[in-house]
């Protein structure tokens, strides 16, 4: 187990977090949810940047209060709000990283900067959003960390750059000892990368499922009002009223395909599921 959160609670004026999740070795775990759902609060709690009111966080097998500076060499972090010391250049960072991490590879870092078009001698403050985002991910992956903790690493990137970055993460995972916790509000990014996905809304985890199950067994039913009245709702997780009738999220689309061939059933994607779970009436 690389990371384990047990009912981590944090209360703000108008927001309450209560989050439990796990990241296992060899796995990529995703956290999806809309802005303000509690993703950043969760990440900051894991990293000890804020102090939860209650609950346990175990990072690399240790309670986070016992994490030392050298333990942190084992993690690579990207936070949306965090930015590399922006008055420096990418080259300035080399001796700093070298002094910080035993396993930092200057060569690898320079190669990656070159490959992803990061100028070494330009002040980071003057980088484009995309360049900054890429640099952050390159830094997180530069020191052989066991666990990557990535909060919205693809934010601000265009589709091509996002794919490049996701490929970088896939390369990183070829070493089985590693694991990744990643959040994104672009769920298609996560569909092809994560092994399991947590869905968070209003500070609570409302769904946890293997990506494979989500994509093969979940589906969206489009029902008329009459169909909605008669259909067996045993496998309906959430429904939302629409002009034409109801949209329903099911975790057993085969059941409905076999028993109700007349119903319109869509495979759906994670975005549809999020909308239905968040905006619909949950069972």
């Amino acid at each position: 187990m690389l990371l384990k959160l047990e009912h981590v609670k944090k209360e703000y004026d108008s927001f309450k977090l209560d989050c439990s999740l796990e990241v296992k070795k060899g796995q990529v775990t995703g956290l999806v949810g809309s802005n303000g759902a509690g993703k950043s609060t969760t990440f900051k709690s894991i990293l000890g940047l804020i102090f939860p009111d209650e609950g346990n966080i175990e990072l690399l097998g240790k309670d986070i209060s016992a994490i030392t500076a050298s333990d942190k060499e084992e993690i690579g972090v990207v936070l949306t709000e965090a930015n590399v010391c922006e008055y420096l250049t990418a080259k300035d960072l080399i001796p700093i990283m070298k002094a910080m991490y035993k396993d930092f590879s200057t060569e690898d870092y320079m190669d990656k900067c070159k490959a992803y078009g990061i100028p070494l001698k330009k002040i980071i403050k003057d980088f484009s959003t995309g360049m900054k985002a890429k640099l952050k991910v390159i830094l997180a992956m530069s020191h052989n960390a066991k666990l990557l903790i990535l909060d919205e690493p693809t934010a601000g990137l265009d589709v091509i750059m996002r794919n490049e970055l996701l490929d970088m993460l896939r390369d990183y995972m070829e070493n089985e000892e590693r694991g990744i916790l990643i959040s994104s509000h672009i769920s298609t990014d996560l569909e092809g990368l994560c092994d399991d996905i947590y869905m968070i809304a209003n500070g609570k985890i409302i769904m946890h499922e293997e990506t494979d199950v989500l994509l093969s067994e979940y589906g969206v039913l489009k029902l008329t009002k009459e169909q909605y009245e008669t259909v067996d709702k045993a496998y309906i997780l959430s429904s939302k009223e629409e002009k034409f009738g109801y949209l329903c999220l099911t975790n057993q689309k085969d059941f409905y395909m076999e028993n109700y061939p007349e119903i319109a059933i869509e495979k759906g994607n994670i975005d549809d599921f999020i909308i239905l779970m968040e905006k619909g009436v949950r069972k």
Partner: peptide, 19 residues
Amino acid sequence: PSVRTLSKDLRISALTVKK
């Protein structure tokens, strides 16, 4: 190919390949 490699090549989750 290993589970991770195939998952990388096909851009799908490793658990799917493992399954």
